[in-house]
Design a protein around this nucleic acid. Structure first.
Length: 752
RNA sequence: UGGGGUAUCGCCAAGUGGUAAGGCAACUGGUUUUGGUCCAGUCAUUCGGGGGUUCGAGUCCCUCUACCCCAUCCA
């Protein structure tokens, strides 16, 4: 983690400020589906952060909906976390373990008159909620007494009512602009399905907005990371913890963008559709973006984790290119895995002038992989090569065997084409070649130059294998559903050949030279019937070039430069604002934008007027008010600085006592401390230095220290003036008059 | 449409007023008995658009635009 993402920064700050003794995170999936690569991001995030900051991370099954959840998914979730190499703190947690505590909290809420039993039906609730633009209205049942609510709620729990008859809601605000705050549902009745863990004990179940914050609190979670779509729920989260008056330390929720990848779908619903519709062979089909799928395909946990680190964590909705994932797995396997020879589409080759048998020592790893190990390769008159490695009418740039281009058999001899034997349909079924006796690998004295070395297997000893080649599941970058499925996402070749050492080896992952990385299928592989999954192909600039030639380039829609050239756009003014606007312009000579901003904001306008009372320059004041004050007011509506402070700062700027740069930091300080600006300037000696005699030596020093940048500047990088000015300012702790510095630097840089 | 978010290279993503990081992809060239790896190099005068403030703006202010989320008794 070289660069810290925003979540890690939050954690660091909280630790630094001693907000928490120890941080606790959690990965809280609902056990209603198989975890996918998006979960891997969340797992990696929560567990890694806990690890890095010496905290703990819980694995919690958020199992509050008995209709969709089951044990099978719990196991898949646990497997995924374990496989990725993480350990959860203590036992696996379940929200269902907190049902009793949660019930107590609900009663407390009722007693505080912050929750009530509502008896509206579903449609009514929907209707009463209003819409995003219109406020809702509260149910008449909200007026029920505490005792009545308590009684009803208990009877709900006891199963005395049917589903939908009653519901427990928080009493918040039916007119809130945030829909989630319009009296959110807390508990609902479910009787038709038993909970996979609590069975029929409960007739009521807590809803997410109620259960989640409280479960976090119960577990002592400090940082509750979730995805962007829960941003609106954060207000409910905080409301619950605040109104219950829960003692600190309490958890806070932070949101990050969920992972999306092109050419795949990530939603549980769509994944379920693929499985249930039989479009794939189960949740662990190697084409699925599920963790089980990647595992079965042959991905390593390290590759997935590296991928997660590479893509980072941020708040922008984004779609990661699958190429990034493919890079991660290639990069990992390249360092780890033995190279062997396999022939996917065998073409028989008879070496006419070879009659013996020999065994050739061959290393499992190329020189650039720091691992050792080798095996003996049988070699005889009859071998197989890949059909792609021979061509009677080769395209331009073809490096492999052709009638007039010899090729090396990797680790063995150079061969030259003699004759092609065709079947009655004209298809080549075998070729005859001749080998060059003194061209053996390592002791080549033939002098023959060859363009490439190809893989091969000896005919008698080679083992037949089945290979399953996977292509992306969808043909579209942003697939909507099964209609975008790639019909060729799975290609099975049953009669591929591999050197026998592969079958004898205990290794499970191999690089089939010049083809890709392959994995012994963990379910179906056996020595008698070897089955290999292709994990990922090798980067292949040759075949890419070939396909690019054939497929005309998809003309990507060009990014259109926005052209809404409404110059210097400012908000429309009302009649009264217009009058103020004109007055500001004529009376104080303010420009359109300053006048516009002030005339629309009464608070700023008030600030402005009081600040110029004592004769400060209106333009300077207006600039400070519309920029600095407006910024501060955005974050804090009750500032502790006064208009008088602003007027003092403005005076100092006008008298050139301080620079505008200092004025900025000065303002920030009084906004925080409320101190008198003139005093601060005196105390800290912030008066600006304008005397060239003082500044010049500093400039010279800076230039002397940065000769490389001086070169760059002289070579034409004029922006570097900012760098030099910045350095000089740094050297004077910001006190040098930047205007003067700028002029002096400019002339200095052009000297000599 | 009210509210909450987000916009920096083809794709991710750093950057909190002073030289636009890094990875993927792409493209050169070198090494190579894998058209792989590795190595060297190229790839944002510009940060969604327009203004304003400043000696200096991706960063502060105003404004416009685009996209995402919220009206499940799902999570």
């Amino acid at each position: 983690m070289s660069k810290k993402d925003f979540l890690r920064k939050i954690v660091e700050d909280d630790l630094k400020s001693h907000k928490y003794k120890e941080i606790v995170t959690r990965f809280p999936p609902e056990p209603n589906g198989f975890p996918h690569i998006g979960h891997a991001k969340s797992i990696s995030l929560n567990f890694s952060i806990a690890q890095e900051y010496n905290g703990r991370c819980n694995l919690r099954m958020d199992d509050t909906n008995p209709l969709t959840e089951n044990e099978k998914y719990v196991e898949a979730l646990k497997d995924a976390v374990k496989w990725l190499g993480f350990e959860w703190s203590g036992d696996v947690k379940y929200t269902s373990d907190y049902f009793d505590k949660l019930y107590e909290y609900a009663i407390e809420l009722i007693k505080m008159e912050k929750a009530y039993v509502d008896s509206l039906n579903e449609e009514e609730i929907k209707e009463y909620r209003g819409t995003v633009t219109t406020p809702g209205k509260r149910s008449k049942y909200a007026k029920r007494s505490i005792d009545e609510n308590l009684e009803l709620f208990e009877r709900m729990k006891n199963g005395e009512f049917e589903e939908g008859e009653h519901i427990l809601r928080a009493k918040i605000d039916m007119t809130s602009p945030n829909m989630k705050m319009r009296d959110p549902l807390l508990y609902r009745i479910i009787k038709k399905a038993p909970h996979y863990r609590t069975g029929n004990k409960w007739a009521i179940y807590p809803m997410y907005d109620f259960a989640h914050p409280l479960s976090d609190y119960i577990e002592g979670v400090t940082h509750s990371f979730c995805t962007l779509e829960f941003e609106n729920n954060r207000e409910v989260y905080n409301w619950l913890i605040d109104t219950l008056g829960l003692k600190p330390p309490r958890p806070y929720q932070y949101e990050f963008a969920r992972l999306n990848m092109n050419y795949t779908v990530m939603s549980k619903r769509k994944l379920l559709e693929l499985v249930e519709g039989g479009y794939v062979n189960g949740w662990d089909d190697p084409r699925m973006p599920t963790i089980a799928g990647y595992k079965r395909r042959g991905y390593t946990p390290e590759a997935i984790l590296n991928f997660c680190n590479q893509i980072g964590v941020a708040k922008a909705n984004s779609v990661v290119d699958v190429a990034q994932l493919e890079f991660a797995i290639r990069d990992d396997l390249n360092k780890k895995v033995p190279r062997v020879m396999a022939v996917l589409n065998p073409l028989k080759v008879t070496i006419a002038n070879y009659d013996g048998y020999e065994e050739i020592e061959a290393s499992y790893y190329p020189p650039d992989v720091p691992k050792s190990g080798s095996r003996k390769l049988p070699f005889s008159k009859e071998i197989y090569i890949d059909r792609d490695d021979f061509n009677l009418n080769p395209p331009k740039g073809y490096y492999r065997l052709t009638p007039n281009q010899p090729v090396r058999l990797k680790f063995a001899y150079i061969i030259t084409f003699k004759e092609a034997i065709k079947d009655k349909n004209g298809n080549i079924k075998e070729i005859i070649v001749e080998y060059h006796k003194n061209s053996k690998s390592g002791q080549d004295r033939s002098g023959i130059k060859v363009k490439s070395a190809i893989q091969w297997v000896e005919a008698k000893s080679a083992k037949e294998i089945e290979v399953r080649l996977y292509d992306r599941l969808f043909v579209k970058e942003n697939p909507q559903g099964v209609e975008d499925l790639n019909p060729n996402s799975l290609q099975i070749i049953k009669n591929s050949l591999v050197e026998k050492s592969v079958i004898e080896s205990s290794e499970v992952r191999f690089q089939f030279e010049r083809e890709g990385y392959f994995f012994k299928d963990p379910q179906e592989y056996s020595t008698a019937k070897p089955i290999f999954n292709k994990i990922v192909s090798l980067k292949d600039s040759w075949s890419k070039k070939q396909t690019q030639k054939n497929i005309p380039k998809e003309t990507k829609p060009q990014k259109i430069k926005q052209d809404n050239n409404k110059s210097g756009e400012m908000a429309q003014l009302s009649e009264e604002e217009r009058i103020v606007f004109e007055k500001l312009k004529s009376e104080y000579n303010l420009n359109n934008q300053l006048s516009n901003i002030l005339s629309r904001d009464t608070k700023l306008l008030e600030f402005f007027h009081s600040a110029i009372k004592d004769g400060s320059n209106p333009i300077t004041v207006a600039n400070i008010v519309t920029n600095e004050v407006a910024k501060e007011l955005k974050q804090n509506s009750n500032p502790i600085f006064t208009p008088l402070d602003i007027s003092k700062i403005a005076d100092m700027i006008d008298k050139e006592i301080i620079s505008t740069k200092i004025a900025k930091t000065l303002f920030e300080e009084i906004a925080k401390s409320g101190k008198d600006p003139i005093n601060i300037v005196k105390e800290k000696g912030l008066e600006q230095i304008s005397d060239p005699d003082i500044i010049e030596p500093i400039i010279e020093e800076v230039i002397a220290k940065n000769s490389a940048n001086l070169e760059k500047f002289r070579a034409g990088n004029k922006k570097l003036i900012g760098f030099f000015v910045g350095e000089v300012l740094k050297a004077t702790k910001g006190k040098a008059n930047p205007k003067i510095v700028n002029q002096l630097v400019e002339s200095k840089l052009h000297e000599d």
